[in-house]
Design a protein around this nucleic acid. Sequence first.
DNA 1: ATTTGGTTTAACTAATTAATTTAACCAAAT
DNA 2: ATTTGGTTAAATTAATTAGTTAAACCAAAT
Lengths: 203, 203
Amino acid sequence: MAGFSSNTEQNILVAARKVFIEKGRDGARMQEIANEAGINKALLHYYFRSKQKLFEAVFLEAFDKFLPQTELLISSDKPFFEILKSFIENYIGLILENPHIPGFILHELSQNPENIAQFISSRVNHLPVLIEKIREEMAQGKIKPMDPRQIMVNIIGLCVFPFVARPIIKAVFFQDDDTAYEIFLQERKNEVYNFILNSIKPC
Amino acid sequence: MAGFSSNTEQNILVAARKVFIEKGRDGARMQEIANEAGINKALLHYYFRSKQKLFEAVFLEAFDKFLPQTELLISSDKPFFEILKSFIENYIGLILENPHIPGFILHELSQNPENIAQFISSRVNHLPVLIEKIREEMAQGKIKPMDPRQIMVNIIGLCVFPFVARPIIKAVFFQDDDTAYEIFLQERKNEVYNFILNSIKPC
DNA sequence: ATTTGGTTTAACTAATTAATTTAACCAAAT
DNA sequence: ATTTGGTTAAATTAATTAGTTAAACCAAAT
């Protein structure tokens, strides 16, 4: 069976992704990851020397996926509000495909506030660029004057929060009806855009 | 020294609160809680038979604190937008005093989506009431027509998110400047209110 | 035919940690 | 003076889990 069913390393990463993101770093078990990957612990450690190494691989990958990739949007010459609309749709769409990543990232970051700072800043040069863009619009009077960082936090928060708080929102406002909540999430692509739009454009 | 320094049970709860909320259920260690409480493990288990029991005590307490207490606000006969303003100020103020609770609750709930549903719904009868209030305003044309649940999620999300995502926001937008971020959080009491106001009131 | 590399099996080590036990301590109440 | 209840200390148990090891297996490449 050697080398036949393609790349074991990938199988492991898929399994590790699932278990780590579901259980968190501390809650995850190497045995469970091995089971999930359909291999045994020995082979697991053969590929990734330690839990820590494996976790880092999963975390970095998840982190890169979690960050909104705004390069394309920013470089486009569309009007700002179209860029905004695309951004929100893309970002919510991305999270819909990986709904557990935001909670995972935020939780693990909260546990490691230390050395992560520099490594973050090296990967998020584009968000401040988006802030610049907001500032320009503001100067032209197309956006109400306010701290652009507040706007950015609002945008991202409105996209992310419904996923991070999924169980509680689903219970409180949707009587635990999965389908209803799924629809609610889909509708947010428009809702969030309109919400932001109305709140930042001069009346 | 018996019975002198008041209630050991309280000391334990304070310590457990700190450790559990900081490290999460899986990351917390009974030994660390005992140290933090200034006692030994034996006494810790003497008061709370198991880690699970202690965790539940901490979790339930935190959960109750985390839920916005809206009864007073709702029962008041102030105009809706004043109620809204109070709600946001109170809630952000509450979280400012317990900034790690939201992340803690949301993370632990994500790990236990099962049996928690009923226990939640028994404690949050007031949030749906607030939804009713929104609906009334909407009927009178004082709020744009839209799904009231979207509004509620937006309100709560805007209050909570900056705390849940603190490390990453602080790194990306504030170059890890604690003071700057603290100011930013304070300003949100007004920012969030204005943001919501502008986005839901008819133009 | 032999070598090689990915793989399994299964037992094992080592470390960590929750939980228990037992004896002793001591201050306050009786 | 004795009892009692909260407390400590320190050793111990029991369970879990990360990580290791060594031997064998097997398919593909040489």
